[in-house]
Design a binder for these strands. Structure first.
Length: 341
DNA sequence: GATTCGTGGTG
DNA sequence: TCACCAAGAAT
């Protein structure tokens, strides 16, 4: 890999930040100011989620819960409803716990260092560094997918970013490069660079403001970075979803409080080995297919007669289930059901 | 330390 | 259709 001397580092900082001052994405709604609450909410939403997806969620969230106190005292159902469709729902629950910790335990006084911020639920090394650098000016690299991608190319870093140990390797390499005068802007500039010129696919390094620092581009091996071992494909699972009607209501079942879609309401789902195991009146020729990161669900809707209620089951009217935060897969099932009828 | 956690976009 | 990705953290 490449190494930069102090002069190169200073030149890189200036080049990067000059470009950022001209072409940074200052219109993004979470960049209106640097209040830690706004930065926290946006950073949690942006975990593993695209900017364009987050924008409307962020604006709705901040409009309804404009302060950390508002979030701390809100009913959890309200927070989850605001999060509906974003996925990774433990983020929403942890975000509220973090707000409650700041308000109730710290009396509204935010932790300012990256180290202390990591004590907040849902705030790990990246998010803590992002908040501490952007809101409080701490000189730390916010090592995320963008920094992996950008610096692996600039410096030809061969560490496998799928490996947990690589985070420290990148952190140690990037830490002395972060501009101590403008650490928050430095981190955000790398994000903007990673979403414009130094993208995952089809990078445009020839036009990049930092092309002169890009060793992988110089050597024609840009497509080899970042190094990342591939993950396994989703496991296929078959389910039978029970459609049970009673007085205009539908039977729902609350999922366990841990695991996939923890605590969310869906139609009663029973895993089956094959379509032969379906019991009842099959409603569709094709199943509802829903793909998670590591699971692929094929769900057959089956109409069944009412039976005794399990303690995790309830009949819900349309008004009731529409007010709940439901996972995408359940919305698909409902849509399929109403399409059929 | 490998696995688990959602969803929508894209080539 | 499908693999892979997108501002990671918790377990």
């Amino acid at each position: 890999m490449e190494t930069w001397n102090e002069q190169t580092i200073k030149k890189f900082r200036k080049t990067l930040l000059d470009w950022y001052d001209d072409e940074g994405r200052f219109h993004l709604p979470w960049r209106v100011n640097h209040e830690p609450y706004r930065v926290l909410v946006s950073e949690i939403m942006l975990q593993q989620t695209r900017v364009d997806t987050v924008i409307p969620y962020f604006e709705r969230f901040m409009k309804q819960l404009p302060t950390v106190e508002d979030l701390a005292k809100a009913p959890e159902e309200v927070v989850l409803k605001l999060w509906e469709g974003l996925g990774y729902y433990s983020r929403a629950r942890n975000l509220q716990k973090a707000a409650q910790f700041v308000v109730n335990e710290l009396h509204g006084s935010w932790p300012e260092s990256s180290e202390d911020l990591q004590s907040l639920p849902g705030v790990g090394p990246y998010t803590a560094a992002a908040i501490s650098s952007i809101s409080f000016g701490e000189t730390v690299p916010a090592v995320d997918g963008n920094q992996y991608r950008v610096f692996s190319r600039l410096l030809k870093i061969d560490a496998d970013i799928a490996d947990t140990k690589s985070r420290k390797i990148f952190y140690d390499i990037i830490a002395p490069i972060v501009d101590p005068e403008r650490p928050g802007d430095f981190n955000q500039a790398i994000m903007d660079l990673g979403s414009s010129y130094m993208t995952t696919k089809n990078p445009n390094s020839a036009q990049s403001p930092v092309r002169q620092f890009n060793a992988a581009y110089r050597d024609g091996v840009e497509d080899q970075y970042p190094v990342k071992t591939k993950k396994q494909r989703p496991i296929k699972q078959l389910f039978m979803a029970s459609v049970v009607k009673k007085n205009g209501q539908l039977l729902f079942e609350k999922r366990p409080n841990n695991g996939l879609l923890a605590g969310f309401w869906t139609f009663p789902l029973k895993q089956i080995d094959s379509v032969e195991d379906l019991v009842g009146e099959q409603l569709n020729i094709k199943p509802v297919v829903h793909i998670f990161t590591h699971r692929r669900w094929e769900i057959w809707l089956v109409e069944q007669k009412a039976d005794n209620l399990q303690d995790n089951q309830r009949y819900l009217s349309p008004e009731e289930w529409q007010s709940l935060s439901l996972p995408k897969v359940q919305h698909k099932l409902l849509e399929k059901l109403y399409d059929t009828e």
